[in-house]
Structure formats: C-alpha cells, structure tokens
C-alpha cells in the first residue's frame, strides 16, 4: 500500500513540476516579449517585415570593440549564414571558430557566407592591434 502511495506521490510531483514550469515559463513570455520561447507571439508583434531571404548581418568593429556589444546570432542547422564584419582598422585575421573560416589581413571588411551545418555555439573573433576581440557568437540550433 505504502509503495503504491509512494509511486503515486512521485508521479504527481513530477506532473506538478512540469505544470509549474510551463506556467512560470508562459508568464515570463508575457512579461517580456523578447524571450524567444514562443516564436508565435513575437511574430505577431512584428508583422511580416522579415523578408524570406534575410539580409546579411553587419557587425562593426570600432576602437577594439564590436558596436552594440557581443551579439548572439541564432540560426537553424542548414541556414545560410551571411555576416559582414566591417573594420575601422586592418586586422591580422578575422575568423569563426569551429567552422574554421578565416580571413587573413582583412583591411576593411570580412564577409562570411557559409552553410550552418555544425550545431553548437561558436565565436567570431578578430586578432589585431587591439588584441583578441570577440565580435559575436553564432548559435546554430538543430533543425
């Protein structure tokens, strides 16, 4: 008897946790629409301005720092990643980790254009007069 009650309590607690988290999670989304948990809501708020073929992301390097801080750019596996890094001074190299794509001695810009086929989080980094600078993080999620 005690055993059956124990199992039952365990299962009820498990369900309670799921319900509690789902509830808390949805409340967060309502408070703060920038949380990307439910893509549906955010698309409603920003009606079809996003073109089907997204324009390249632009990252500007000014005085050894990326303008607007280190951004996280999210893609789904299989997407075409197009990122243009604009430089205020020549760098020794600009590269993305993991994909191992590298531009040696770029003077004004480095234009990445590759297919996101590795899942994970990868840094875009510049080496130059200001040392090692992280420009952005690429986040590739499973399709």
């Amino acid at each position: 008897m005690e055993r059956a009650i124990g199992i039952l309590i365990g299962i009820l607690l498990g369900i309670a946790i799921v319900v509690a988290f789902v509830f808390l999670g949805s409340r967060d989304t309502i408070d703060d629409p920038s949380i990307d948990e439910s893509g549906a809501q955010t698309t409603i708020e920003a009606p079809a301005t996003a073109p089907p073929e997204p324009a390249p992301e632009v990252i500007q390097l000014r005085g050894g720092e990326p303008v607007g801080g280190v951004r996280e750019l999210t893609y789904t596996k299989g997407d075409q990643v197009q990122i243009s890094v604009e430089l205020d001074e020549p760098q020794e190299d600009v590269h993305i980790h993991g994909y191992d794509i590298e531009f040696l001695s770029p003077a004004r810009s480095a234009d990445f254009d590759f297919k996101a086929d590795i899942e994970g989080i990868f840094e875009i980094e510049a080496h130059g007069p200001s040392g090692d600078v992280v420009l952005a993080e690429i986040r590739v999620e499973p399709s």
């Binding site: 124990g6 199992i7 946790i17």
Partner: peptide, 10 residues
C-alpha cells in the same frame, strides 16, 4: 523525481 520515489518505494 518519479524515478526516485519508485526506487525508494520498491
């Protein structure tokens, strides 16, 4: 949680 209670109960 569920597994814990099952382990403890049986």
């Amino acid at each position: 949680l569920i597994v814990s209670f099952v382990v403890l109960s049986i």
